[in-house]
Write a protein that binds this DNA or RNA. Structure first.
Lengths: 361, 361
DNA sequence: TTCCTGATTGTTATCGATATCATTCCTGCC
DNA sequence: GGCAGGAATGATATCGATAACAATCAGGAA
């Protein structure tokens, strides 16, 4: 085991960008350097393989000295395991979904699987493109948000032959596994809770299109429940393309109050629009909940911090991520097991805060 | 479940999930189906290649009919082009960084390159792991946030021989390209602007550790400038591990005002902590800016919406992303050109709002 | 001593696409 | 009519790792 590697002619050592002469550094070269076969180097890279400690140590030292970095694209071709799973969320700039992403990441720890994240901007077309882009890299599983996909996307997913998990809602026609809850029932629960406190004239603020299917479900849950409670037709304002922003929440409540000035309480598709609505009210000199009560959905950090704090629905975002990943791992391991296209329900609960506090009125 | 298959001599061919028989669908089979060679199918998948329109059409129909999805992991091995670039951000749940990610995505449109996003949780160790994980998939370039990396990370990046762009700050020892601005000077500008309005007793709220290097730079810019203006030693409170949350902003301002009750204006490491601080003040019956003025950094949406609206520094987050991607693309194309380890400065500006409005005091 | 067993390491054939070079078939020009 | 030149397509080697099987070796059982 001499220190000096090979006695090759003085090759041009440094000719590229900066330090790099790694561009052609391959496993075979590490092997030659150590004096073993490439296969042994390959084995040294995984814990389970049978390589003597002594050899592994020498190999790893060489890897370090040479600066070798494993090439997964080559490895996954021959092993037929890409080593990653894909997750698509509507937006990365949304703490609900990033909590879900964190749940996935955590559940994947020590599985040898990596998460690849994509965001769809609430667009089924973008989702389709992303699904294709992901599938081209052969993920071992895929996690989607919602159950609304283009036909082509469904076909591709079907063909792919990998486990699929739809999250955050309960699709009518699940592709495979589902981890989520009924947005409609969650909103319904919020309506009933507030109605039981004496509120009668309910308003709703949400986005204009059906692109955000969770938003649509919350709206229909609202309308249905208001009807069921005999509280007249619900007063719903549609404003803005999802994701509806804070600012749009503010604009929407102005429209709503112009049209129905005697509204007592307004539910919003998310805490962000609720926050915008509350701030707009304060700006106009109205008191919340004194003059009007406002509630949101999602229990974002802002809702517990802001003044008044915002009544909302807390969703187990992180748990959705963990469970979705767990279902995926189940499916990947027990391939011989029962197929188990199961539906995993996740929890939610009403969080009552200042923004709907009757005693403050 | 059927009787346990004790004798599984003849391996069941198709026993998998749903529709999938695609697992073994390969380019060669598409080719056979159409009656051409695999090479022609490969060519049909890119616009530049020379395939007759007639043939391409037939191939694409077959692709559609069979449900074939290109396998990039095979392709990138032989072409030595992985087709993606990596970007690492501290947090995905932060609109500043997600704006940067959007800038990158947009700039990459129609380049045939895809973005792979990773988040480091403001940890250099996680960053190192992520860099390694990314490099194993051989990205064609990599975009980092900040200039603080572990030694091993620097070595790996150096060896990798791909363009690297550091963003969001101006590192002392850039690896390669830089797209960013001086956080220290930006904060300094904010101090000077407020000082010119008559503020004298300045406080600062930021995180406890140096993990968030941008935060550290803002703090030092604050301290230096307060000193330079002869406004005594700056009053800085350290609170919480980055990213400092809204809630921590609220707790921090309480500590700060306990210690230095006569503070006139408090600058915060980000709008989120500024928001938390403002809400805490209101909760305690203090008026902002009446009793105390508060400013943030980053110009998040919340700052223009909330009441009072928050004075802050607007950063060109999206532009950072676009330019970083543009530098990367430059480097990838003109490989023979001048090396050009250049520094691209991006803009920022003070946005004065209600939270520091002297006339309201 | 001889054979067997298990741990360790090596050899060879892929994985599925693409680079590269070769081939075929036209079209047009002298 | 013969040939240059270009467009379309095919054949083969290869990218860099890993699966699968083979080989080697030490130590113990027979």
């Amino acid at each position: 085991m001499k220190a000096s590697p090979v006695k090759n002619e003085d090759e041009p050592k440094d000719k590229r960008l900066k330090g790099g002469d790694a561009q052609k550094l391959t496993m075979a070269e590490v092997a030659k350097y150590v004096g073993v076969s490439a296969m042994t180097v390959s084995r040294a890279f995984r814990q389970d393989a049978s390589v003597s400690e002594e050899t592994r140590k020498r190999i790893m030292e060489a890897v370090d000295a040479l600066g070798y970095v494993l090439d997964l694209s080559a490895g996954s071709l021959s092993s037929r395991r890409s080593g990653f799973i894909a997750a698509l969320v509507p937006s990365i700039n949304n703490s609900n979904f990033s909590d879900t992403a964190r749940g996935i990441t955590d559940a994947l720890e020590n599985t040898g699987l990596q998460l690849l994240l994509g965001y769809t901007d609430y667009s089924a077309e973008k989702e389709e493109k992303l699904i294709e882009a992901m599938l081209r890299r052969r993920p071992e599983g895929i996690i989607l948000t919602g159950g609304s996909h283009t036909d082509r996307a469904r076909r591709m997913l079907d063909k792919a032959g990998i486990p699929v998990v739809e999250t955050w809602e309960l699709p009518e026609e699940p592709i495979n596994h589902v981890v989520g809850f009924s947005n409609s029932e969650a909103m319904s629960l919020l309506v009933r809770t507030l109605a039981s406190q004496g509120y009668r004239r309910f308003g709703y603020i949400g986005g204009t299109t059906a692109r955000d299917t969770r938003g649509s479900q919350r709206r229909s849950g609202f309308l249905k429940t208001v009807e069921e409670l005999g509280l007249g037709p619900g007063r719903a304002i549609s404003f803005g393309v999802p994701p509806i922003t804070m600012e749009q929440g503010g604009q929407a409540i102005v429209s709503l109050l112009e049209r129905w000035p005697d509204t007592e309480v307004v539910l919003c598709v998310s805490d962000l629009s609720a926050f915008g609505a509350i701030m707009e009210c304060k700006r106009r000199g109205m008191s919340v909940p004194g003059d009007i009560a406002i509630a949101g959905f999602g229990d974002y950090e802002i809702s517990s911090i802001c003044h008044p704090s915002i009544t909302t629905i807390n969703v187990d975002c992180y748990g959705i991520g963990r469970q979705a990943a767990a279902r995926l791992l189940d499916a990947l391991q027990g391939s011989g097991e029962a197929t188990g296209d199961e539906i995993t329900l996740t929890g939610y609960r009403v969080v009552l805060r200042e923004s709907t506090d009757r005693s403050a009125q």
